[in-house]
Amino acid sequence: MAYTKSTTGRRGRPPRLSPERIVEAARELLEQEPESALTIKRVAEAVGSAPMALYRHFPDRDTLLQAVADHVIARLEPDPLAGDTWQEQVRHWMRASRERLLPYAQLLPYMAATRQPVGLRTLGRLAEVLRPLGLSDEDLTLAVVLIGSTTMGFASYESRRSPAEEIAAVLQEGLALRPEEERRTTAPLLPHLPAAHARLYETVLDQTVAAIESLNCR
Rank of each mutant, 00 (worst) to 15 (best):
R121F: 01
T186C: 10
T114F: 03
P19M: 01
P80L: 07
R160I: 04
T208G: 00
E45M: 05
Q116V: 09
L142D: 08
L101E: 09
A196Y: 09
T203P: 03
D84S: 13
A168T: 02
L29P: 04
L177H: 14
L146T: 01
V204A: 09
L193M: 11
V23F: 02
A155Q: 04
E213N: 00
S214W: 02
Q106Y: 10
S162F: 01
L64F: 02
V209N: 11
P51K: 09
L107C: 06
R115N: 15
R13S: 05
A113K: 09
R16C: 03
P188L: 13
T141K: 11
S214I: 00
E213M: 03
M152T: 12
E28C: 08
S36A: 11
P132V: 07
A169T: 13
H57N: 06
P78A: 13
T85S: 07
H197E: 14
L133T: 03
Y157R: 13
E20H: 12
P15N: 09
A96T: 04
Q116Y: 04
A44Q: 06
T39C: 12
S149L: 12
L102S: 00
A50S: 13
R13F: 02
I73E: 02
L171S: 12
Q116D: 12
T141S: 13
P80F: 10
H57E: 00
A37I: 04
Q172E: 15
E138A: 14
L120M: 14
Q116P: 00
L177S: 15
A46F: 03
H92N: 15
L76Q: 12
E158V: 02
Q66W: 00
T4L: 15
E180G: 08
D84N: 04
C217E: 15
